[in-house]
Each structure stands twice: as C-alpha cells, then as structure tokens.
Write a protein that binds this DNA or RNA. Sequence first.
RNA 1: GGUCCCAUCGUCUAGCGGCCUAGGACGCUGGCCUCUCACGCCGGAAACACGGGUUCGAACCCCGUUGGGAUCACCA
Length: 471
Amino acid sequence: MTEKIRVRFAPSPTGFLHIGGARTALFNWLYAKHNNGTFILRIEDTDRTRSTDEYIEAIIEGMKWLGLEWDEGPFRQTERFDIYKKYIDKLLETGKAYYCYCSSEDLEERRRLAISTGKPQKYDGRCRHLKEPVKEVNPVVRFKMPHHGQTVVDDLIRGHVVFENEQLDDLIILRSDGTPTYNLTVVVDDVDMKITHVIRGDDHLNNTPRQIQIYEALNYSVPKFAHLPMILGSDKARLSKRHGATSVMAYYEMGYLPDALVNYLVRLGWSYGDQEVFTKEELIQYFSFDHVGSAAAVFNPEKLLWLNSQYIINASNEKLAELVIPFLIKERIISEGESLDKEWLMKAIGTLKERSRTLIELAVSLRYYIAEEVEYDTKAKEKFLNQKSRDLLIDLKEGLASIEDFSHQKLEEIFKAVTEKHGVKLKDLAQPVRVAMTGGTASPGIFELIEIVGKKKTLRRLEKAVKAIEA
RNA sequence: GGUCCCAUCGUCUAGCGGCCUAGGACGCUGGCCUCUCACGCCGGAAACACGGGUUCGAACCCCGUUGGGAUCACCA
C-alpha cells in the first residue's frame, strides 16, 4: 500500500444520529480499519440556522455507543471559514468563479417560470461576464462550470457514471452573508484533510460531478468515491420516523446491544457468502466494497430483533448483569442505588438469556426472581390455581419446608414424591407451581427457577397461591 | 418534467455464462425435544419484473419497456 487510507464521516448536526447515518459511519469505519487507515469525524455545520450543539453531542454519543471510534476530529466546519475563504479567493483570482448579484427572489421567480414552461431549471449564467459590481447588493460567489464535455464519476460501487457538463449549472459557493456552501466546503475539507476515499450515501451521487469540477479547478487530484445505497422503510420510501425508531439511541433504550445493531446494519447492503453473524474482528477482516450491493435495502426490525437475541445468548452472564441494571431501574424492578448480589444475578440471567430478545425483556423476566410478590395473570390463575392443584401445592410446600438444600436435584426428589403420592404427572404439578412462582405460564425450568428464587420466597409464594385458591 | 441510480423468495441476501430442478438468513408454517415458554434440531410454502437480442448455453452480458429511488436551494 503506497498511500495511507483516510476516510471521513461528515454528518450535519441537524438531527440525531440515525440508522442511515450510522451505516455510512460504519462502512467508513470498517474500510479504515480494514486498511489500517484513518477515520475522521467532521461536523458539517455551515447551516447555522439548523445546526445545534445538542445534535453534535447526540451524534457523538451514538457513535460512541456503537463503538465507532474516530482517529481525528471532531472537526467543525464553522471553525474553518478562513480556510474556505482562501480557496474561494483563489477561484476568483483564476477566473474560475465570479460574483453574482441576482437576488434570491429573482432566482426563485425564474425557477418557477422554468418549471411551468417545462424548461430545465438551471441558473442562466447572466452574471458571468459582468464587468462592474452592482451597487448596494451583497453578491454571492458562483463557481464557473464548464458547458461542454463530460464529467465521469468512477465509483467503487456504481462503476462509471457519466454526466454531461451542460446539465451542470454555476452553483453558489459563497452566500451573500459571506458563509461558504456545502459543495465548496466538502471539497476543500476533503482536500485539506487528505481524504482518499469518500464513502457516503447515494443521495450525494448527483452532486459528485460538481465537486469533481471544483477539485479540478483547484488543481487537486480527485479522491475515490463509494456511494452507498439508501435504507428504505417497509413501504420502500426513504426510512423515516413513520417506519418506527430511526434514532440510533432509541435502540439503546429499547434494549438492543450495539454490536447487534452494527451486525444488522452491515448486512444491509454488504454480505460475506452465507454468514449472518459476525464479530467486529471478522467484519474488519472481511470488509470490502466488492461485496457491497447497489440496490436500496428495506430496514427489517424483525431480523434485527432476532440478531439481538443471538447476541444476548452469546453474551456472558457477567456482561448482561451489568447491562441490565439500567433497565431494571427503568422498569421499577429495583430502585436506583439498590444493588443485587452479582453472582446470584448472573445465575438468574443464565436461565433467562435464551428467552430474552432485548435487555428490556430480560429485565421484565427478572422481576419474578427479584420481587417480593408476584401478580397473577388472570387466565393462568383460573386455569392452574384451582381445587385440582390445591392439595398438590400444599404437599409440595410441606415437602419444601422440610429441606434446606434447594439444589436442582433435591427439588426434583421432592416434586417426585408429591407427584407419586397423588398419581399425577410432573406437568400437573409444575404448571400450578409455575403460576404460583411467576404469575404466568412461561418461565425457565421449574427446578432452576425455585433454586434461584430460594426457600423463603418460594414458600411464601406457595402459601399465597393456596390462599388465592381458597379465597 | 430533466438528470442520475437501481431491479433474485414478503424482507436481507448468495450467485460474478454451464456447479441453479436458484443456496442461506429473518418472518410464516408442519414436526421433534419437553414441566411451560424459549433455545436447538428436522421438514414445508415462498423469488430470477417484462420483452428482445448475444451465445452451443443466460439470474448472470447488451438494448428496450415497466416499476422503484435519488437529485435538481444563498440545505447538507
């Protein structure tokens, strides 16, 4: 490798880090890591009316949560106006740009006319050859686009994309208030930061020929481009809030693991044979644009949920014990500052991880391990806590009261004695006990459940169940 | 509307001219396991948008059609 790879993620802070932005960031990050390159974070905040510091923080928070650490930055374009000014002056001096005195109202009017008459809506270049400044008008600076020939974008994903230069118009690079615009700042920054590969969303493909012209006017070499396909909602429209959560941090709040989201996002557009689940190391090792598809992809929350369940199953009990705490608090299962015995929690989690698809589900299930009392599901109570099970529960309670060792094996012996005495099957006893212990009909195995809940709470719950039947 | 991009099961995708009576995954579904629920395992339904070429041979290459998307700002 002769040239060190340098890539950047350049969000504009006009919103939270969303799913689409996160995937763009991820592909940049992966490409950098795979090639031992540099990943730069650059905040494109030249639109001062829509950018906020809160959003910058939110984007940073999202990237950190996903584990997409950057090597340089975050740089802010609003702190780099001097640099842009220098380049604009250079373009003005070399005759590659000019002042335009048309007012935005006039422009808007002409655009409307063009649309209504079916003409291409394009700036007509009337100020190109102006000799004298127009008095009392703050001009904008426009870039002088070539009128003939073609501009070719050599895209790593799309291949050769050819644009006719006559389609391009003289875009504004400096506003009348003296601030530079996007097409100028991206080029200047990418040159200045020595970006080798511009990896971004498909929606920028049409801007690329304009940017290439600016590179050439400035006499700089053009970087490589890779335009990623868009992420769509279930109706194939661009992904938006209508389709559900789009903010990355919303997935944190819903109990997703960051690596699961990363894994899901990377498979939206990229593949490696038939493999579905990847470690980060594998992703870095395998990633390449050769296997990035070019069609837009529909975001499928169901599959993300499945992946999350896989990541929960594969996570260590210790890790889950840490991660679940905020959710236990949020679900009001424990109170803030309350601590649980870690070993015990880990054991409980071990019985629940394969039936929890999110950390919220895990926390909610943990309730019947932790809470003093359980509430009965009405249907479960009717079906299993009745005269038929009353004596079974009473005998079981007695049996359990007589032992101190609540090990799986010992519990099984007690259960066996009760079922044999009454001539019933295990399930005839297990289901009523399950309802007594959890309030519902679904739980881990009855012996492991009782073992972890412990003698004191178990006896109390059986007692309560018997009373509920008699009531 | 102009320009550009895209097109394999409902969804994500494998496929880079013969290994394809099209493979995997999610979801759906039948069964097994079983104290319930899950996990897991075995099986099923489900796709090459359409029409022309090129070729001995096309999901794959070319051209149209249709359908989706992006973009046309003193937003990024």
